[in-house]
Simulated assay, not measured.
Amino acid sequence: MHHHPCNRKSITVVSFFFLLYLSLHNPQTIEARNPSQFTINPSPDVVNISEIKRHLHRFGYLPRNNNDSDAVSFEQALSRYQKNLGLPITGKPDSDTLSHILLPRCGFPDDVEPKTTAFHTGQKYVYFPGRPRWTRDVPLKLTYAFSQENLTPHLTPTEIRRVFRRAFGKWASVIPVSFIETEDYVVADIKIGFFGGDHGDGEPFDGVLGVLAHTFSPENGRLHLDKAETWAVDFDKEKSTVAIDLESVAVHEIGHVLGLGHSSVKDAAMYPTLKPRSKKVDLYIDDVDGVQSLYGTNPNFTLSGLLASETSTNLADGTMIRSEGLIYSTLSTVLVLGLLHF
């Protein structure tokens, strides 16, 4: 979606949302600050109900034949959206919900088949419908390659390869799967490329921000990134306010390649949104538990290694970010891991 600043006089947010919610069929608008605009005085963006509904349609919350006047369905869809993104569940287009709707994100739908294993009731990860996974000879080895015709002008091929090597390494460290780079794009299991607009897979990209990337379920292996984005590996060098960290997106999309859906845990790599000039490159316990339920545990995986990774400091445009409540979350899962894998 593309949004444009306006100069309308601000009104009381609560009363405006209430009136808007009661009159969904009217072409009223909601004013909200665009979280992707990191300026001192960002301009407000206008989001109307039809745009919110398009977002809910796009990511699996409303059926295509939904009646525009069906306020009940709209409220239910918003409630599911809020639940899946770990937001307060109000069923209304409140400010938290609008902020997330405006954020850049992965193009994979959120509303997919939930996990059903009793041991995992405390976790928030989900799978693709049908729970597909890669089924090859053990030990499992997957090859990946980059399209030489579809790269980004913002990074060199060497930088791109280095980023993906690290990203694949994150997942390989927790499951018994190895990822091997190959030059043969045609026969590679995982095919990576930067594409613009309608690129022939039925999922066209939408330009700067909006959808950042999308991936198909196992064993398809296509991993596509939006060529329109300002992809970055170093925010000290790339000063654009809309720069997107490539490694963060790569880690997320590889999770989809392996069969994971989106998590509602905001610290998880599989959470669907990512702010410009921010980084989320480490796996969270929710990511690890989910992918190990599909492939088992890497024999060299240790809880202490995960703790060290999760508590590491990420630098995002000079800002230090540290996960909170991590030790409690991780230690509470160690017994679950033991029951599952021993």
Rank of each mutant, 00 (worst) to 15 (best):
Q37K: 13
P276A: 10
E203G: 03
G169W: 01
D226S: 15
V187C: 10
T90R: 07
E247Q: 13
F164H: 03
T215I: 07
S309M: 01
A243S: 02
Q82C: 09
E113F: 00
R277H: 03
L56I: 09
P5D: 09
R54P: 09
T135N: 15
A145F: 10
N48C: 10
Q148D: 13
E75Y: 08
G200S: 00
N66W: 05
F235G: 01
D287G: 01
P44V: 04
E149D: 08
R166A: 06
S147W: 06
L306F: 10
S36M: 08
S99L: 01
R131H: 11
S248P: 00
R133W: 10
R162M: 01
L260W: 05
A188I: 03
P129R: 04
A316F: 07
H100R: 12
G207A: 10
A316Y: 06
F74Q: 05
T143N: 09
P27G: 04
Y21N: 12
I327N: 13
E183I: 11
S278H: 04
K266L: 02
G305A: 15
A71G: 08
L307I: 15
V251C: 07
F146V: 00
Q28D: 14
L212Y: 04
F38W: 09
D94H: 06
D111E: 12
S69W: 02
S95K: 12
S293R: 04
T333S: 08
I327Q: 14
V265Y: 01
D94M: 00
L87S: 08
P104Y: 03
F59N: 06
S147R: 07
K191Q: 09
S293F: 07
S50I: 14
L326D: 03
I30F: 14
L78D: 03
P93Y: 03
P276Q: 09
L151F: 09
G210I: 00
P176D: 01
D198A: 15
N220P: 09
G107T: 01
L274A: 00
F18I: 09
Q28S: 14
A268F: 03
L151H: 06
D286R: 01
F195R: 02
H4E: 12
Y125P: 03
L102S: 05
H3N: 11
S15I: 07
T116Q: 10
Y284N: 07
L258T: 08
T182L: 11
V72D: 10
G261W: 01
E113P: 01
D96G: 02
K9S: 03
D68V: 14
L274G: 01
E324C: 08
S217Q: 15
S95W: 11
Y185R: 00
D234E: 13
L24G: 07
G290F: 06
R64Q: 14
I175M: 08
A250I: 07
Y127F: 15
F342Q: 15
L335W: 13
Y125Q: 00
L102F: 09
M320S: 14
I49T: 11
D234V: 12
E183P: 08
L294K: 00
E229F: 02
E310V: 13
T215C: 10
I254Y: 00
F59D: 07
K115S: 13
L140K: 04
F16L: 13
L335N: 13
K53L: 07
L151M: 13
K275T: 02
